[in-house]
Amino acid sequence: MKICLATSGGEGMKDNVSMNFGRCPYFTIVEIDENKDLKSVRVVQNPGGSAGSGAGVQAAQTVADNECTVVIAGAFGPNSFQILKAANMDVRECQEMKVEDAVGQYLSGKLPASSGEGRGPGRGGQGRGKREGGGPW
């Protein structure tokens, strides 16, 4: 299982989870084996961090390209949430903490799933609609 964490720096397990998914500078990708042991840790840059617009789209695309199945950040914007959901990812929110602690909390089932939608108005809104196109992925 690959877990992607939005992080503020490029320091891997000792880094802090970023409160912002779309515009965090780095992703730390943590691979966990069947026994819940750490298999590998990789840091990749988030191209969304420097995108003028559509940051969440680029960030979500990067996570998908790296074949992660779980994503953890402080909060997710409307665009990124829509794409991560469309890619069938497990989207989790957490408070500010170290990457290693967030992974631990996730594995022990303590991180809440992101509802992503809030109680916003019942119409329009970015990222609220169902995915476009409707074709196979």
Binding site: A75, F76, G77, P78, F81, G116, E117, G118, R119, G120, P121, G124, G125, Q126, G127, R128
Partner: peptide
């Protein structure tokens, strides 16, 4: 309505 939707998000 729009900004509230984003804030909620």
């Amino acid at each position: 309505r729009r900004v509230f939707y984003l804030a909620e998000h």
